[in-house]
Amino acid sequence: MFVELNNLLNTTPDRAEQGKLTLLCDAKTDGSFLVHHFLSFYLKANCKVCFVALIQSFSHYSIVGQKLGVSLTMARERGQLVFLEGLKSAVDVVFQAQKEPHPLQFLREANAGNLKPLFEFVREALKPVDSGEARWTYPVLLVDDLSVLLSLGMGAVAVLDFIHYCRATVCWELKGNMVVLVHDSGDAEDEENDILLNGLSHQSHLILRAEGLATGFCRDVHGQLRILWRRPSQPAVHRDQSFTYQYKIQDKSVSFFAKGMSPAVL
């Protein structure tokens, strides 16, 4: 969890808004620091987290999580974190006979039309348990990242359907939050990815867009972060605010500063 980012977004683990979809997007840079931020943020907020990790292994997220002060292993043992390790499960789907539909069942079927098994996995993972007092505050779904599903052969509309159902269940029914990452290839020919990115942008309440610098690599400024609020329930004057900050990723934190105000420049 990066405190500076919390300040920019005006939130803390104790008083986060509920029922929101946050879209993370990275163009010409790696936006995974945002995923690590939200993972540790929601674990610290005592939420029940379902993490669909299709990009990295559990140990990768675990090591980064340790640096940010959360233990993924312990969270998993406590039942706070449900981790779907895409890299490992993909092998299981192909080489092991399954009794019940696997979340990534579509990998096995030649023309799987939808991601219903994956949605059912998410719903099952975040289903409120009736045993005694509520242990977790609210459910959270994290996906890293959705573009992988396109690469694995799903259509953009199928992925949008999956997100639609997750929104209906997690954000609306259970009043939880969702955070998803999508790459922006910046390539006009990748129509499916554009449809996915724009479709999600229209549904999300907050868009965080990490971009590489137009001038190329720099040692002291790693990129810029554009924050776009979409608040449909507020008057036009206060909605659709957009801010841009530059950032530098450090060992255990990320520092943000106004454009052109890097300490190395001043």
């Binding site: 724009n198 229209h202 776009l228 329930s233 036009a236």
Partner: peptide, 8 residues
């Protein structure tokens, strides 16, 4: 568009 939403 994404910047100017029309639902309101």
């Amino acid at each position: 568009s994404v910047e100017w939403e029309g639902r309101s």
